Simulated scan of single mutants.
Amino acid sequence: MSEAAGTASRGAILPLYAAGFVTAFGSHGIAANLGFTGDLGEQLVTLGILLALYDGAEIVLKPVFGALADRVGLRPVLLGGLFGFALASAAFVLVGNPALLGLARFAQGAAAAAFSPSAGALIGRIAPSTGQGRAFGGYGAWKGLGYTAGPLLGGVLVAAGGYPLLFTVLTVLAIAVFVWAVILVPDPPPLPRRRQGLGQALRGLADPGFLPPTLALASSAAALSCGVGFLPLVGASDGLSPVATGAAVSVLAVVAAVSQPIVGRIRDAGRLPDRTALVVGTLLTAVGLAVPAVVGHLVGLLVAAAVIGLGTAVITPVAFAVLAAWSPPERIGQTMGSAEIGREIGEAGGPFLTGVLAAAFGLGGGFLGIAVLVALTAFGGLRVRRRTV
Score class of each variant (00 low, 15 high):
residue 249 V to D: 07
residue 58 E to T: 13
residue 44 L to V: 12
residue 229 G to N: 08
residue 316 T to V: 11
residue 106 F to K: 01
residue 188 P to Y: 10
residue 388 T to F: 09
residue 158 V to Y: 11
residue 266 I to T: 14
residue 165 L to R: 09
residue 85 F to V: 03
residue 41 G to L: 12
residue 288 G to E: 05
residue 183 I to F: 12
residue 180 W to K: 03
residue 70 D to Y: 06
residue 218 A to K: 01
residue 235 G to P: 00
residue 381 G to D: 11
residue 250 S to H: 01
residue 387 R to M: 10
residue 92 F to M: 07
residue 222 A to Q: 10
residue 49 I to T: 06
residue 2 S to K: 02
residue 94 L to V: 15
residue 34 L to T: 08
residue 200 Q to K: 02
residue 146 G to Y: 12
residue 251 V to L: 12
residue 31 A to D: 06
residue 332 I to Q: 09
residue 79 L to A: 07
residue 255 V to N: 13
residue 212 P to R: 13
residue 358 A to T: 10
residue 154 G to M: 08
residue 332 I to G: 04
residue 265 R to L: 03
residue 286 A to L: 02
residue 72 V to D: 08
residue 109 G to C: 03
residue 306 A to S: 07
residue 344 E to Y: 13
residue 190 P to V: 12
residue 30 I to N: 07
residue 217 L to A: 09
residue 307 V to G: 04
residue 185 V to E: 04
residue 237 S to Q: 12
residue 98 P to M: 14
residue 191 L to Y: 04
residue 58 E to W: 08
residue 50 L to F: 13
residue 110 A to T: 06
residue 105 R to Y: 00
residue 94 L to D: 08
residue 89 S to I: 04
residue 263 V to H: 04
residue 127 A to Y: 07
residue 378 A to S: 15
residue 28 H to M: 13
residue 62 K to I: 06
residue 12 A to F: 05
residue 306 A to V: 03
residue 62 K to M: 15
residue 378 A to Y: 14
residue 60 V to A: 13
residue 290 A to R: 05
residue 323 L to Q: 08
residue 276 T to E: 08
residue 72 V to R: 15
residue 211 L to N: 02
residue 300 G to E: 06
residue 245 T to C: 01
residue 169 V to N: 08
